[in-house]
Write a protein that binds this DNA or RNA. Structure first.
Lengths: 192, 192
DNA sequence: CCTACCGATCGGTAGG
DNA sequence: CCTACCGATCGGTAGG
């Protein structure tokens, strides 16, 4: 467990890394945002990269925990996929800064953390693909691999533009995406 | 017009900015990749940010020129949208480094370049939305605004993973996406 | 295009 | 958590 103060430092680092980028954020920027002197950060953390790691690893845990919750209940395949998309959007929208670092800044991790991160992310995507495969089993023209890539691509992009203070709640956005992804944008009549 | 040498510098900068990020790339990194001394770069360019600007502005021109070409011919709305998606994917796949900087590093531009970039990007997206609107006009359940966001989100993400040396040519990838986006992933039977 | 250099700032540490 | 500092490196310039 991290101390409360360390959690504050991590949260502030996520905001700054998301806004300015990892390398463009100096430890003195971070210290200033926390009303500390530069060197004082190091009584709580070991290095700048440790902060990056803690942010993306926590985000990875959020995504995986969400998928486990979604697959735990006994739900039809299509509804499970709908829940997974909602959950994926929800994790992103719930902490946009962490999601931005997860999708964007992780590549500045050095080994072995970089590989550890990628392994968790690949695990998540493989689990997601199984949910997609179960839902599209009656659609022989659809390759679950590419359907998963399409779904995650579209939703991952949220970190680039989604505004939690805007008019569209995460679940409504997810449902809009789900309707289009499930039935297509050229459907001739409305889908319930 | 930029000199041939300057074009080489811009191309190398795009590669480095895409791989390491704008701030994590030093001018000495760039000079070294070009077999120059650090200070020698400044006989060709004014500043590091000028390089960033030239990369994203050229990418913006590529996207806009593509859309103009697509809308110039007299093609049915659905086919025009298909061509636009293929074109969008093509521009990204054709220069992944430039696309990465366009989607990812532009935010390190300072004013007034930052606003100039965003204006061109908004213009492109508005034009793309018109193409989508014409294609989905018979689908009353589909909002062209969200359909456009879905399409561009899914395709923009390509810069994160697409490998031009891989087995899937850009047009085939685009057609896979188009099939799923047009008809949905839950369609009960194959679509021609 | 090079050498040599500028002031500023970087991540991190010692010692308290 | 602070003060004071380390060596390294940053973007950019002067003068040739």
């Amino acid at each position: 467990m991290e101390s409360a103060r360390k959690q504050e430092i991590i949260a502030e680092a996520a905001q700054l890394f998301a806004t300015r980028g990892y390398h463009a954020t100096s430890m003195r920027d971070l210290a200033k945002a926390l009303a500390l002197q530069g060197g004082s950060l190091y009584s709580h953390i070991d290095s700048k990269e440790e902060l990056l790691w803690l942010i993306v690893d926590e985000a990875a845990s959020q995504f995986l925990a969400m998928l486990h919750a979604v697959t735990a209940s006994d739900t039809p395949p299509e509804a499970t996929l709908r829940d997974a998309v909602r959950g994926h959007v929800g994790v992103i929208a719930n902490d946009l800064a962490a999601a931005t670092v997860y999708f964007h800044e992780w590549r500045f991790l050095t080994e072995p953390r970089r590989s550890a991160f990628l392994a968790r992310r690949r695990d998540y995507e493989a689990r997601f693909r199984q949910i997609v495969a179960a839902a599209v089993v009656d659609s022989p023209a659809v390759d679950p691999k590419w359907a998963t890539t399409l779904i995650l691509s579209a939703t991952n992009w949220l970190y680039q533009w989604y505004d939690p203070a805007g008019p569209l709640p995460p679940d409504e956005l997810a449902d809009r995406y789900i309707t289009m992804l499930f039935h297509g944008i050229l459907m001739p009549q409305p889908v319930p």
